[in-house]
Amino acid sequence: MPKPKAQERDAQASQQKILDAAEAVFAEKGFDGARVDEIAKRAGLNKGMLYYYFQSKEQLLRALTDKHFEEMAQEKQAFMESLSQGEPVLAERIGEHMMGMFERRKSFLRIIAIEAFKNDEFTREFFRIIDSTIPHLNMLAEKAGMDSETLNRLKMNIFFFGFAPVLLYHTVGEKWTEYSGMDDQTFRQSFMEDFRNNYVSTIKKQFKVEHPGRL
């Protein structure tokens, strides 16, 4: 017998509270240091209710990861649909798309970064982010007649010279401003300018693009 809609809404709301609380605790203390009691407390629920929806801390982390990747897939689709028919894909728009996705997921990125150094499974999740945040890549590669070896090299460049700097910006950028004495606005403007230049340069080199600003 299906649950009444009100019960379904309550269940979804409870699960969302748990996921939000888990993300905050995992980001602050790491997966190993996080305690289920604290997650339940932050969610405003008892531990029994948490275990009703998520049978283990590992399952909770997996659910959190799946949630973010599903949302990124939806954002990717919306981004592709926002491009006009026949419109050249602008490198700057792609960079802004990547930055926006990461801006909204600072805590999640911190969790993935911490776990990737300890767990091979999460290292693979790290790599999956490329396909989630660079939605135009396979399409452009196909149009350019790019072979698989060249495409893999492009993905390598984007990951290590595009994604990695952005990851550091969003996870330890505030600490850099404290250490260096640089104000937040100057730091952001400087980083974005250099990021665009380096990102666009990498993509253009791989695709041998002739017109500045276009892919």
Rank of each mutant, 00 (worst) to 15 (best):
H136R: 09
E38Y: 00
E28M: 11
E174C: 03
H211E: 14
I134H: 08
E210N: 11
L140K: 04
A6R: 11
F161A: 12
M80F: 09
E70G: 09
A11L: 10
F69T: 02
K67M: 10
K3L: 14
S148P: 00
R35P: 00
D37Q: 04
F159T: 04
Y179G: 04
P88Q: 05
L61V: 11
K3S: 12
I112S: 01
A34N: 01
K47R: 13
H170L: 09
E125D: 11
E58S: 14
M182G: 07
F117N: 12
G213N: 07
K208D: 13
K143R: 11
D120C: 08
I158F: 07
K57T: 05
A164M: 14
G145D: 04
W176Q: 13
E81D: 14
E174G: 15
P135Y: 04
A116Q: 07
G44Q: 02
F102Q: 02
Q15I: 03
F161D: 05
R128P: 01
H68I: 03
R110E: 06
S190Q: 13
F191R: 03
A21W: 02
F187P: 08
T123Q: 12
P4H: 04
A91M: 12
K143N: 12
F160C: 05
I129L: 15
D66K: 01
Q59S: 12
A164W: 10
L109I: 01
T177D: 07
K67I: 00
A116I: 04
S107T: 05
V25W: 00
I203W: 04
K76E: 09
S14W: 01
S82V: 06
A113M: 10
S201K: 06
R35M: 09
F195A: 12
Q85S: 13
P212C: 06
R128D: 13
T150F: 02
M139S: 11
F159D: 05
R105P: 01
E121I: 07
K47I: 03
H68F: 10
A27R: 07
Q59I: 07
K118D: 12
R124Q: 15
R93H: 09
S201N: 09
Y169F: 15
T65S: 05
D147G: 15
G213S: 07
Y52R: 06
E58V: 11
A43R: 01
D184W: 07
M146L: 12
